[in-house]
Each structure stands twice: as C-alpha cells, then as structure tokens.
Simulated scan of single mutants.
Amino acid sequence: MAVGWAKDGAVQEQIDASVADAVTEARSQLNLCKNMGDSLSHCEECEALIPEARRYAVPGVRLCINCQAEQERYGQRAGIINRRASKDSQLR
C-alpha cells in the first residue's frame, strides 16, 4: 500500500536495495582479504606489533585489533544512513 508519493512496493524495493548494498560490501571485503598478500608484522596505522596468532588466523592482516575495531566502527556508522529515502520519509 503506497502513501503520498511512494509507489506500490517502494518499501520492499528499499529493503532489497539495502540488502544488495550489504552483500556487495561483504563481497568486496572478501576480495580484499584474498588479494592482500602476506600479513604485516606491525600495524600500518599505529606501528603496534600484530601477534603471530592473528597473522596466522587472518591472512593478509594489516591492522592491529584496536585499529581494525576503530575502522569497523566507522564503517558501521556510515552504513546506517538511508541513502534511498523516499519523499514521504523526508517530509515526516
């Protein structure tokens, strides 16, 4: 049921687009990991030592745990923005 300027099925289209964006982002992260090469012994951001267990568990690791967590937190904040907002949601 559409209201205002939204067409029928607009909500489902928005949900589908959000899921497609998340899948694309996840696939791009997988491709990055495959092409990273050897793990670094020290973090490329803060120069902290990356433990051997982490280098073994995550092939191609380039960041320490703290820097990786900060990068993921930033990515999650950017992902909560609704870029496909309809006119209805902007007017409310």
Rank of each mutant, 00 (worst) to 15 (best):
N35F: 05
R83T: 01
C64R: 00
C33F: 14
G75D: 09
N66F: 09
A20M: 10
S18C: 11
G4R: 15
E25A: 13
V61D: 00
E44N: 06
R73G: 00
R54I: 07
Q68D: 00
S41Q: 13
R73M: 06
E70T: 01
I81M: 10
N82I: 07
D38V: 02
I80C: 06
T24P: 10
I65V: 08
D21F: 13
L32R: 08
S39L: 09
V61R: 04
I81P: 00
V58H: 14
I15K: 08
I15Q: 02
V23A: 08
Q14N: 10
I65K: 11
E52N: 01
Q14I: 06
K87S: 02
Q68F: 10
A69N: 09
L91M: 08
L91G: 03
Q90L: 15
E72V: 06
E70Y: 09
E52T: 01
C33S: 11
A78V: 10
E25H: 09
A26K: 06
S41I: 07
V19N: 01
G4H: 13
E44L: 14
S39H: 05
R55V: 00
A69M: 13
R73H: 03
R55A: 02
Q68S: 01
A48E: 05
A20N: 08
S41H: 14
C33Q: 14
T24S: 12
V23Y: 13
A85W: 14
M1K: 11
V3L: 15
N82K: 11
C43M: 08
S89H: 09
A69L: 11
A57L: 15
D88F: 07
L49H: 06
A26W: 13
P59H: 13
G60T: 05
G79C: 04
T24E: 14
V58L: 15
M36Q: 09
R54P: 01
Y74Q: 07
S89C: 10
E52L: 11
A22C: 09
P51F: 07
R55M: 10
E13I: 03
P51N: 02
A69T: 09
N66R: 14
V61W: 05
A48W: 06
L32V: 03
N35V: 03
D88L: 14
C46D: 08
D16T: 05
A2V: 14
G79Y: 04
K34R: 07
G60M: 11
G75W: 07
N31R: 15
C43Q: 07
Q76C: 05
K34H: 02
C33N: 06
C33V: 15
G9L: 09
I65M: 13
E25R: 15
N82G: 02
L49Y: 05
A26I: 08
L32S: 00
Q29R: 14
E45W: 00
V23G: 00
N82Y: 12
G37E: 07
R27D: 02
T24L: 15
K34A: 01
Q76P: 00
K7C: 03
L32T: 04
E47F: 12
K7N: 01
E25V: 11
Q76H: 07
M1N: 05
V19L: 15
S86C: 12
P59N: 04
A17K: 15
C64T: 01
Y56D: 04
L91C: 04
